[in-house]
Design a protein around this nucleic acid. Structure first.
Lengths: 341, 341
DNA sequence: CAATTGTGTGCAAACGCTCGCATCGGAGAT
DNA sequence: ATCTCCGATGCGAGCGTTTGCACACAATTG
């Protein structure tokens, strides 16, 4: 693994000074057009690649953006990461992926350690205490996704609107007794969604109940389904799509007809929501947008274009699919409950 | 964004030389226990974090491992990346994520540019020409996942065995006429799977046909489903799970009973295979294993522990679920075809 | 024609760290 | 008491860049 050609080598070959070669790459305006062309040709021939470490040492920049997230295997994140990667690449940054494995402490630790590792950090669905986040933000520009913290730039998906639409949608379908199936207790999003659902249900005069918290997994959803079946409700709004899919599956397994006897809706509109059976009614999170915007915010901070603690909120829309339908008439409901025993 | 405390600052505070502080971190054996303890305390108090760039400049290492893949949003990859991240983190490396956006040229370009960017590279499902890969491997240790190239370390998932099992499984269920639904033409894996299916089907004396190539997407699968329905076959082996799910959906939509009238199996056993309806019979790729192993191979290379061009092959196993069942009797088949018109 | 402005280059000092080598005191051997 | 050796520490070079400054020369101006 021989070291790659350095500025020095190119300079020697071209018969110019190191500075000139350096400028040929970083400040082309400062240099004679023909000199530059010749240098570039030689550099190319020698396979010269600027040494990032050396550059970073003097500029104090790494050209790296870190993305901190709980679990890349959670289908919610990949589209986000994709968008981040794309946008970062366009702006000349590479992406450092850091998976916290769902451990808040690990997240906090990484948040501390990454000072100097990256020029900026995007923290997705952060679980750390606000203090830890603020502290990190003092050293490195930080943009939060899916959580707001005072004084820190953040992008949240305004699922509140989506949830409201969902409840309206269920109400319009004749449902009068609904349940919110709660996800992780520590989740900011969960509280948002739960509260919003409750508020709208109350407003419309529907019976409303919260079940959970359950683990935000497929089996968590299956678990919830049994509790759901025992409740008097005719529709459920789940914390996220995976739970909703678990509910769907367990309900179907137990002989319930979805949406004939029971309606289910999810949240996030992950790739597989549309592929579920029946296709899942869900709330589309503009997650790719969030990723793109996060990078822009970060890069703006890095370029000194202030926007320090801009707090954005992108709205998601309800996507109606096959898992929600008209509320069963009363006799159907009785029959359903009998069948499920 | 003040620069963080440097070695110099810590040294000054501790009344020792810079070298001593440096060694306190990197070569603890060389230093007095009490000196070290004191230095560590001061460093901690000052919030000292070693500057990666400076370290990298002198050591020639970045402590970065790059992961190059076609599309992180493809559900096949996240578990892989997760395993890579975990293992890399344990070994003191961070992960640079590079998404090629399914463009072979972009992949080649990144492969070229990343010289010096990272200490090693894991290329997943590479689409570049072997020459490009070899060239990159001359500058930076490379491990390939999901493709073998002579002289380069690689880890492939031996889906051949899994495919063989699948065909056996279908044969045992009474199927005598099966189809392989082909994915991207340029994919190494696709050829592997196709050939293996053909061989085993021939061996068992089954009628065999290849359909496609179709795009490896849900709608690609739906497309294939229509062709499938028109064929005389009773079972399909799809290139991957997403296509299989598309097939499942379209078939169900058109009134086919799966697995009653038609059996479908996929490949990779992605998270959602088990959540499909009916749950998808698939071939479990030991993809997390592959990720872990890739990192180990890479780090071994970096540590000079040879293993240059080790070629590993991990075997995946057939996971039988609800989407495959006994072949329909002949009269059922006739009826099915009538119904589908 | 001198004075002024550019325009293109080179020089050399950082940036923060690692590591080979020199130094130095003290313990053990002779 | 002298010599040796070893463990702990300091010195200083060098890693490949960027960048402020100085300089040379040409072009423009009065």
């Amino acid at each position: 693994m021989a070291r790659t050609a350095s500025l020095k080598a190119v300079a020697a070959e071209a018969g110019v000074s190191i500075s000139t070669v350096s400028r040929a790459f970083t400040r082309p305006e400062l240099i004679g057009a023909d000199t530059r062309k010749q240098i570039l040709a030689i550099a190319d021939r020698l396979g010269y690649r600027p040494n990032r470490s050396a550059r970073g040492l003097v500029t104090g920049r790494t050209a790296l953006l870190a993305v901190l997230l709980p679990d890349i295997a959670n289908p919610f994140f990949p589209p986000l990461v994709r968008a981040v990667e794309d946008t970062a690449y366009e702006k000349g940054y590479s992406v450092l992926l850091m998976d916290t494995d769902e451990h808040p402490e690990r997240e906090s630790k990484m948040l501390r350690d990454l000072a100097g590792q990256a020029d900026g950090v995007i923290v997705c669905s952060p679980r750390s205490r606000a203090g830890v986040i603020r502290e990190a933000a003092e050293r490195t520009p930080v943009v939060l996704v899916n959580r707001a913290v005072d004084g820190i730039a953040s992008i949240t998906c305004r699922t509140r609107d989506g949830i409201r639409q969902t409840v309206d949608h269920l109400h319009a379908l004749g449902h009068r007794d609904i349940v919110y199936v709660s996800g992780p207790a520590s989740s900011w999003s969960d509280r948002e969604r739960r509260d919003s659902a409750r508020r709208q249900a109350r407003k419309l005069g529907m019976a409303f109940e919260v079940l959970g918290p359950y683990p935000a997994t497929f089996s968590g959803g299956m678990l919830a389904a049994d509790a759901l079946a025992a409740s008097g409700a005719t529709a459920a709004v789940a914390f996220d799509d995976i739970m909703a899919m678990g509910i769907l599956r367990r309900l179907t397994e137990r002989g319930f007809d979805v949406p004939g006897q029971f309606s289910v809706s999810g949240c996030d509109d992950i790739l597989f929501a549309a592929m579920a059976y029946p296709p899942l009614t869900s709330i589309a999170s503009p997650i790719a947008d969030a990723g793109r915007t996060a990078v822009r915010l970060l890069v703006d901070q890095l370029d000194g274009l202030i926007t320090r603690d801009q707090q954005l909120s992108l709205s998601g829309e309800l996507v109606v699919r096959g898992s929600t339908g008209p509320a069963p008439r009363h006799d159907e409901r009785r029959e359903a409950r009998r069948a499920s025993r």
